[in-house]
Design a protein around this nucleic acid. Structure first.
Lengths: 164, 164
DNA sequence: CGCAATTTGATTGTGCACAATTTAATTGTG
DNA sequence: CACAATTAAATTGTGCACAATCAAATTGCG
């Protein structure tokens, strides 16, 4: 008892090459590396590119809304948006209606950058070597995975049931 | 020519919800969030956990080898391993044969932590809601994606086709 | 041997992720 | 109206990713 039991089967659980997380982490970094290359000409990092995508698609938005759409908090967005502002791509303006809110507005230069960005998704799609159907399927599976993981993260720490 | 052609179709290329990168980025962060919860008791971050996995599986290794297996460079590994050392889980020792090399060796405490870590992969697997076959399939697809992206990142930058 | 090239880590600097805290504006309630 | 609660950003602090640079040890070659 409390023996070192079933060494083979147990070890399998911890094998690096069997863990989905590692494949996913690696794929995420590989994407990041390719985006780094493709976005270099645009002067954007990958998260900055995501912010620009949202602004191009939906127009000017408050920081709060950007955070909801991209699932980023103010600790990440505040400095990121300031860098975009320093690059001349956006302006930050306090909302007139609600002084707590900061609207992020595309500048002419920021809006113009969209033209150059159009080639990026095509390059990415080509680089994956996946056809559109396969990409769609993978995306659906990943989204399902994300939902399941988010739900689990909320249920897992319920731990401290005794307070007061 | 050089027209702004087909506005609708073009916009689709930049739609956030169609980009595989966003799903993957989100899934990666969702994994990270769940690991953060599960590893809290072990006092490990997710990348630190990956390093421990490798050490548990393959025994003591030089930093160089750790970096190859996990695809992390010294800028990431040096401080990370120092934190593991500060936590008492590993020791860093200059190799006697090659003074340039630093061997990372598990301490008794580090080796003992493996017992507690065994439950982590099981919790993760359960949280995904995927059965083993589906996980394997997804993993294979992600690994293929990573290879394709890495290859593309190497080929992409020579780009400037019109120069001179 | 002697010195250039290579290899291994460490360091520095920038940027992102996220938790925790803080500040200011707004809203709700008595 | 006054004040507590809530909300939106910003700030602070820790840790990871990665590029670039540096230092020390090793290797290889003439």
């Amino acid at each position: 008892m409390t023996a070192t039991e079933t060494p083979a089967a147990e070890a399998d659980w911890l094998r690096l090459d069997q863990q989905i997380c590692f494949s996913l982490h690696a794929a995420s970094r590989a994407f990041n590396g390719l985006y780094r290359v493709l976005l270099k000409d645009l002067g954007l990092t990958y998260p900055q590119y995501l912010v620009m995508l949202v602004l191009w698609e939906r127009g000017d938005l408050p920081v709060k809304k950007l955070g909801e759409l991209l699932r980023l908090d103010s600790g990440t967005l505040s400095p990121l948006v300031k860098r975009l502002e320093a690059a001349g791509l956006v302006r930050r303006e306090r909302s007139a209606r609600d002084e707590r809110s900061v609207d992020v507005r595309l500048t002419g230069q920021g809006a113009a950058l969209r033209e150059q960005a159009l080639r990026v998704p095509r390059s990415i799609a080509a680089a994956t070597g996946f056809d559109p159907a396969e990409i769609g399927e993978l995306r659906a599976r990943l989204d399902r995975l994300t939902s399941a993981l988010d739900a689990a993260a909320l249920e897992e720490p319920p731990a401290p049931p005794d307070r007061r």
